[in-house]
């Protein structure tokens, strides 16, 4: 096996480490405390945001370093954001609310921070479903348009986090700052590209 072919499984396993840590806390250490459902939701939610930001960072990193491996693993990292968001959503729905559908529905509709978090999750699901190569081919030009929604998901997830915080915004500032930097980079990059192609055309 070459180094490159090992990279993918290595990232895969590494990305599962936080999940393993969560399972360890649930079943072995049993140190989630008196409110384990909440703790589990918070922990997995944070990992979802981290992977989402990481997936968003892949293209800029490729552009900056020229290293194609960043983009090769982008989809998998994005799918891990979806994976942790799913665990986050299920932990909330099952362990906090006992999967009472009526209560869940009311919460999603009535609590703005949950509405917005759920919106981010729906986007991630849509992107996950359309991530296989078959779907890329099927959707053609629309695929790119659809997958630009990942930025919307990032913004919604950050607002979701912002609205849960009661008084200290250190995490929001950190994640929001990274997201803002990525968005600014993207905007500048596409502006630059457009200028270059215009220069070429003339």
């Amino acid at each position: 096996m070459t180094g490159r072919s090992l990279l993918k499984p290595a990232i895969f396993i590494l990305a599962l480490v936080p999940f393993g840590y969560v399972l360890w806390r649930v079943f072995i250490a049993q140190n989630l405390g008196p409110d384990p459902a909440q703790e589990l939701s918070i922990e997995t939610g944070e990992w979802s945001i981290r992977y989402l930001l990481l997936a968003l960072a892949m293209t800029p990193l490729r552009n900056l370093t020229g290293q194609i491996d960043f983009v090769r693993n982008r989809r998998m990292i994005g799918l891990f954001a979806l994976f942790y968001a799913s665990v986050h959503f299920l932990a909330w729905a099952v362990f906090v609310w006992g999967f009472q559908v009526a209560s869940l529905g009311a919460e999603i509709i009535e609590r703005p921070y949950i509405t917005i978090g759920f919106g981010a999750y729906v986007i991630l699901v849509a992107l996950g479903v359309t991530s296989p190569k078959v779907m890329v081919r099927k959707l053609g030009k629309n695929w790119k348009r659809l997958h630009r929604l990942v930025y919307v998901a990032g913004v919604l997830a950050t607002i979701h986090l912002l609205w849960i915080q009661r008084s200290d915004y250190v995490e929001v500032v950190l994640y929001g700052g990274i997201l803002a930097a990525l968005l600014v980079y993207r905007a500048l990059h596409s502006l630059n590209k457009r200028r270059l192609s215009r220069a070429k055309a003339s």
Partner: peptide, 17 residues
């Protein structure tokens, strides 16, 4: 942010809300 008609009496476990 929080519905107030019910509450979760602590401690709870994952399978008993």
């Amino acid at each position: 942010r929080w519905r107030q008609d019910t509450e979760r009496r602590l401690p709870q476990t994952l399978f008993s809300q």
